[in-house]
Design a protein around this nucleic acid. Structure first.
Length: 423
RNA sequence: GGAGAGGUGGCUGAGUGGCUGAAAGCGGCACCCUGCUAAGGUGUUAUACUGGCAACGGUAUCGAGGGUUCGAAUCCCUCUCUCUCCGCCA
């Protein structure tokens, strides 16, 4: 969450920045500052009463040990009189801090200066493009038909087993998927990320730490009997490794990568955008996460972009990078770049990666800090990105590489698949 | 799932109602001393919120939450986690 201190010191600037998200934050910021002031003054009163009560209690003890029972009893009464007042102030302190937290949870991250104005993904700003858009003949098939033709994916059986959005990959389809995972992990490890395998279910505290909770529980599958949530991305367990930790400067940057299945309820989506692999309830992804000193996080963001670029280039897929506009920017992010690959038969761009800098928004919730070079405790910056999400990569691989004989596999994947063509 | 034991500062570990934010040891840091295999001495060493220019204060925190009491690490209740044994099991 946003630091109250920042709101206090740079209120106008922050409110101005929020306009990029098309929200007028003036009111809520004001409420937060008021609540925080109230919290402080309430706490000051409480502290002084507690101080009195403690002092009295101490004296009572001394009087008893000196055998002055009557005086002691008199003092006891005095302390008893304070009790109710203390309790009231404590109750109030509790409700104020809940109220303050509720307000802070409503406030998304402050957008970075580079974030363009805009409302929808139409307003995102293209900043880079690689590769030529392939010219496909009229006979080009969309990936769901290719998947059927070559027995790569069985959508119907997935529906039977679970429901729509849970495909069954078979034969070379399964093999190709596994090859991609392996390839992505190898690339990440080569780039200095430590591979980790984490739980695929998380508890509530972890959901809050990375910002999925308390607002967006509807987007996650839940296991109510145990109070767990299926992860929507490996970002959640991987980042939460560092919840409530104090890092040393020599630990930084922390670089982690993880493969995981991702589970998303994605309520309300429909139509041709969800056909085939375009939008699933369960899909695979390799995620990269970095934790850095605040001064270096944007440099790190660039490094992560370069990493994703190199993977897509090796896969020989045409792609572009867009900078998300304020309206499209995720709740916890300060700046996000999406990677979109071109899917030839569908004739559209598909998002395959989202790389974000969360600055201290997550670390503030996570209580992930480090001691800086002056020995002062400071919140770290967290970043993460997909490298990459599988299904749409698969979709565009199938579509872009189809020919009369079958589907050719990019050079770099052949050692992983063991075959160079699907037919 | 059943039974039992236990969660104290970076670590080990004392502490069963007040003088304990917490002994002692280890580790860390600072200074001092000493040229024989690096040891000794002294001091210091938690976090958060908060007041103050500062010096220096206040409050909270001994797994979490509630309760008893003038006063709780210490007593009571609930929850949670860890360990041991049994059961089950990839």
């Amino acid at each position: 969450m946003v630091l109250v201190q920042l709101l206090r010191e740079q209120k106008q600037k922050v409110v101005e920045a929020y306009r990029k998200r098309n929200i007028d934050a003036e009111n809520i910021v004001e409420q937060i500052l008021e609540a925080d002031d109230y919290r402080k003054s309430n706490q000051a009163k409480l502290d002084s009463l507690l101080n009195q009560s403690k002092t009295i209690a101490k004296s009572v003890g001394e009087l008893f040990s000196q055998g002055k029972r009557e005086e002691a009893n008199k003092l006891k009464e005095k302390s008893t009189a304070l009790k109710q007042e203390i309790k009231d102030l404590q109750d109030r302190a509790g409700s104020i801090s809940t109220e303050l937290a509720d307000l802070l949870y409503q406030l998304p991250n402050v957008p970075h200066v580079l974030v363009p104005d805009g409302k929808t993904d139409q307003d995102n700003e293209e900043v880079f493009r690689f590769g030529d858009i392939p010219e496909m003949g009229k006979n080009a098939l969309p990936h769901w038909e290719l998947a059927k033709k070559y027995n790569l994916i069985d959508f119907e059986t997935g529906v039977k087993i679970t429901g729509a959005g849970f495909p069954v990959y078979t034969g070379n389809g399964a093999r190709l998927q596994r090859a991609l995972i392996q390839f992505f992990l190898d690339e990440a490890v080569k780039a200095g990320y430590l591979e980790v395998q984490t739980p695929f279910m998380v508890n509530e505290a972890s959901g809050i730490g990375t910002g999925q909770l308390p607002d967006k529980e509807g987007q996650m599958y839940q296991v109510p009997i145990d109070g767990f949530y299926l992860i929507p991305t490996a970002e959640v367990p991987v980042t939460n490794i560092f919840r409530d930790t104090m890092l040393s400067i020599k630990d930084l940057p922390v670089k982690r990568t993880a493969y995981s299945p991702c589970f998303r309820r994605e309520a309300g989506s429909y139509g041709k955008d969800v056909r085939g692999l375009n939008r699933l309830h369960q899909f695979d992804k390799v995620e990269i996460v970095q934790i850095t000193e605040p001064g270096l996080s944007y440099q790190t963001l660039d490094e992560m972009l370069e990493h994703v670029k190199s993977i897509l280039t090796k896969l020989e897929l045409p792609y572009r990078i867009v900078r998300l506009c304020g309206g499209d920017l995720g709740f916890a992010a300060a700046l996000t770049y999406d990677f979109e690959v071109y899917s030839a038969a569908q004739d559209k761009w598909l998002e395959v990666s989202s790389v974000s800098n969360f600055e201290s928004y997550q670390s503030n919730r996570l209580k992930c800090r480090y001691k800086n070079s002056d020995g002062k405790t400071e919140l770290v910056h967290t970043l993460n990105g997909s490298a990459l999400a599988l299904p749409r990569i698969l979709a565009s691989l199938l579509e872009n590489n189809q020919n009369e004989n079958g589907i050719s596999i990019p050079e770099v994947l052949i050692p992983y698949t063991g075959f160079h063509e699907i037919n």
